[in-house]
Structures are given as structure tokens and as C-alpha cells.
Design a protein around this nucleic acid. Sequence first.
DNA 1: CGCATCATTGAAGCCCTTCAAGACTTGTGG
DNA 2: CCACAAGTCTTGAAGGGCTTCAATGATGCG
Lengths: 251, 251
Amino acid sequence: MFAFIKKLQKLGTVHDEEQALVMRLSVKKTIRRGEDIITVGSTPNHSTVLLDGFACGYKIIENGRRQILTFQYPGDFCDIQSYVQPAPSHAVSALTECSVGFILHKDIERIIAKFPNLGLALWRDTIIEARISSEWLMNVVHRTALERIAHLLCEQIVRLEAIGVNSNAFPLTQVDLADAAGLSAVHMNRTIQDLRQLGALSKNSRAMAVIRRDRLVEIAKFDDRYLQMPQVPVNRKLKSGFLANPELPHH
Amino acid sequence: MFAFIKKLQKLGTVHDEEQALVMRLSVKKTIRRGEDIITVGSTPNHSTVLLDGFACGYKIIENGRRQILTFQYPGDFCDIQSYVQPAPSHAVSALTECSVGFILHKDIERIIAKFPNLGLALWRDTIIEARISSEWLMNVVHRTALERIAHLLCEQIVRLEAIGVNSNAFPLTQVDLADAAGLSAVHMNRTIQDLRQLGALSKNSRAMAVIRRDRLVEIAKFDDRYLQMPQVPVNRKLKSGFLANPELPHH
DNA sequence: CGCATCATTGAAGCCCTTCAAGACTTGTGG
DNA sequence: CCACAAGTCTTGAAGGGCTTCAATGATGCG
């Protein structure tokens, strides 16, 4: 819940807007690791907010292999897109035990109508997601396995820091990371060992633990600008009704 | 210009909204093949619409190689993102001679305030772009060169058809395609020859010409749903009073 | 304690890249 | 109008990063 507010603040909202959204957040639900939070084919009348835990957006390809498209952390919308585009284009699955909340689309619409800036903030959020997606494309095409994994880890570190998670240990399996990086689990494992050898990851723990972040940044030639919210200008004075979705049924 | 209106219609706008935007479209400019339409580092106070010609969004990586992130066709916004997020994250370059028009951000804002649906339509557009981006990621990671190129071509065919371009010849060089597919130009060339052998592309012309579209679809296992605008519900008549004040007070 | 999940290791092979060079096409200036 | 340059397409050969298959350790949970 706190992470959600923090995220909204980063997107440039003001207190009243955050409150309005949070008050509409209902039906918290717990989802076990490995289960789906969003499934394709559904046409929800609400959007889902990840309140606690880690999740990932993914697609399954014909041959059954999984490609992870996004990592999602507390505060992130799992499917804000569904407010604008009815059918989700990919599923979302819980990487750890997750708790989520729901906001009805019509409530989002009401709140945006009242606080036009909020619509802009949510739009902004979908654009950040798109930029991450582009960066992943660059990752997969142009970076070696070593750089790629380092880059992926750097990105997660920055995103986790942004929500106040400063643990250096990732609760992700090597398979999860491999599916995100577009590598085989075998090669992921070998490259992680290289990163350990290079002093970036801990040699002791079996899980992944970053011990030298600067090494990772160096290896990945990581530039975090694509993640940064650009200087959000002073909230524009927007008319009410801006970005409202009048297509949603009222009653 | 016509393509622009057509695109807006696909996004679910109504006549008045399209007119309002088009009337604000100013300063047509012609850009020669190979030159930049959008550069990173700029902070434009307008968004750019591609009126004629083909363009591409791209990034240059440290080693100087280019990754094409999007293809853009007449009617597409080159940088609608810059309305919401000031700094462009990638450059846009003209693949053929292009003509473009500009709309001031403050005009977009005025028009959206008047026609809330339009804001939603533009938001929708950025989401479609993001979906294409995700599909390219799937492309690069999970499909062989043959499938990948076939998929890329199918996507372009569908998008071109949507704006009424039915020519089967692509004005793109093999290098352009290679930079989009994340392949070397050499391998792109060899794979194109395979596609010719398979009867999908013409053997006669030096340029690329699709002669059997079904073959391409089959090879790529192409499913165009990610490109489709979901059933945009019929625009509802706005409730009177939904907009507090239809006049447009502005700075 | 036993079983499922995850991590690790070895070996073989392939798809694609890189380098290098030649052929064809286009357009530009003398 | 031709010559030359620049760009594009094509082909060959060598090599490497990654995948796949397969099997063996570790870890943790009911």
C-alpha cells in the first residue's frame, strides 16, 4: 500500500489524488507463488495493483517456452493497460507470494475525471514500461550474456531501491532470470558463475547476492536514465474530464 | 494527412476530434532519406506526425551499431510520447523521403480537454506501440532468422494495409531490416534468399517483393491479434455536464 | 525422510557473426 | 553522356557464443 503511494508520487501525483485511488482499492487478495495474477483472455472490469511480492509479465511461445516481458514490484500496476485496452496481451504470474488489490475501471475513470493529472501520470507509467521493454530488446540483441545479465540485475536494483527495498539478495530463480534475459538456464548458470568470479556476486550464497554493484554497472555499461522519471513539470492546470474514459458504462 | 485521419479513426475517435487535431497540424516539413526527424536530447514543445514516407525509431549502441525499435508509417506519431514524457528516449530517422507536420503540445492538451476520448485514443496508441515492442522481443529471442524475418514482414504488411498501402514491394534495404531483426546484414541476405527459394518472396526483383503472403504467415506462425485495435466500443455521447466547462481557458 | 525444485557440470553441435571480396545499381559531377 | 563513387546486394570461409541433452549435486519443505 505504501509502495503504491510512493509510486504515484514518483509519477507526479498529489496527495488528494493518491488518497482517492487508495480509497478505491478493494478486495485484497493473496496469490501463491507460481500462480497467475492476470490471465490472457480475460476482460476484467478492474485493474490490479501489486501491493506486496514480486511478479512478472510473461508470454508462452508455441513450443512451450516462457519469455518474461516485465518484472513487477510492490506499487506497480499489473495491468493498467486494461483500463485503456480491454484485453490483456500477456499474463502476469506471481514470482513470490503476492498480495494484490483491485480498482474498478469506472472508479479509475471517475478519479481521473476529478484529477486530470492522474490520468497523465498513469499514461506516463505505461511509457516507462515501454522504455524498459525497448531496453530489453537492446539487451537481448546487442549485449553478451555477461553484459545482459549484469544489465538486468542493475535495472532491478534501481527499481527496487526506488521502492525502498535495499536487500542485495534477489528472490528470483536462475530460470526466472534466464527467461527474462532470453538465455538458456544452463548458460545463465555459467554466466552467473563468471559474475561471481568477477567479484560482482557473492560466492558464498547459493542464491544471487550482489556484493559489488559498481562492478555490475561497469560490466553492463549501465545507464539508468531510461528508468528515471523525467523532471515532472509542475502539475499542469488541466480541465476536469481530461483523459476520462467515457466509454465505460456508468450507472 | 488522409492517413493521419484514418489512423485516428482506428483509434476510435470521431469526426470533430480528428478535425480539431488536423486543423492544428502546422509547419509541414520535408525530410530527406537518412536524416533525423527526431533527435535525442531535444525537448520539443510539439509532437511530430509522419504524413508521408517511411521512418524508423532507433538507438545507437556504444559500438556504433544501430537497433531499429519501430517502423513508422504515414499517420503515425513519431513521438507522441514527448507530450507526456518531455525527453525522447530514441531518435527517429527517415527511411525514405518524408513529410511531417507538427502539433504544439499545448494544442494537444486543449483538444484533449475538449475531447476526452482523444486523449484515451492517443494513450491507446502508445500501448499498441508497446505491444509491438514486446512482440519484437519475442521475435528476437525465440524465433529463428527465417521465422523472424517472415514475422517482421507480416507485421509490416498488416500495418501497411491498415493505411491503404497495398504494394507488395518494400522500400526498405536489407540493412534496415537486419537492424530491426537484430541480425547481421549478411545473414539477412542469406535468409531472404531462403524465403525466395520457399516461394514467399519474388526471385526476380532485387528488392524485396512478397508474392505469397500465406507462406510468410505460415513460416512466421503469424498471429496479428497484437496489432489489432480491440473492439473499440461505439463512442458514447458524452453526458452533458461531463465536462464542467466546454470553453477553453488557457494560460 | 523422501521428493520436488533448483543449481551445477560436461560434451557435442549448430546458428549466426565476422571478415573479406566481388558484382551490381544508383546517382552525381565533369 | 560517361566515369567514378557510394551504396547495396551477394557469396565464401572460419570461428565463436550459445543451445541442447543428459546426468549429478544441493537444498528445503511437508
